[in-house]
Design a binder for these strands. Sequence first.
DNA 1: GTGGAGGCATTAA
DNA 2: ATTAATGCCTCCA
Length: 106
Amino acid sequence: MASTLREEEQAAVLRVIHSIPRGKVAAYGQVAELAGLPGRARWVGRLLSQLPAGSTVPWFRVINASGRLSFAPGSIDYQRQRQHLEREGVVFDGETIRLKLFRWNP
DNA sequence: GTGGAGGCATTAA
DNA sequence: ATTAATGCCTCCA
């Protein structure tokens, strides 16, 4: 068995993110919890930040708990994430997403 | 190899 | 808007 505990956790997180449907979003903390890692929202963020460029992981569907992107508005990363989301139907109210409508509830 | 300090794509109060 | 609580990582001494 070559897999470390850490790799298992990483796989669990990525699996959860992959299951977020188009047009929906989930918070870092929500993803962590669904992956069986309660309280590790920050760790999820760190994981995504280290994701390789060519990754197929829909990282852009993960936002913070207040319904906003965790990038500085106007930054390249912010615009990229926002465009991805709007393209699949997510509507922004200013800089905030209406979680009532777009939050993923499994 | 160990330990402390600082930095985050976090969250809740 | 601030702050405290959290988990993990990187950088030195």
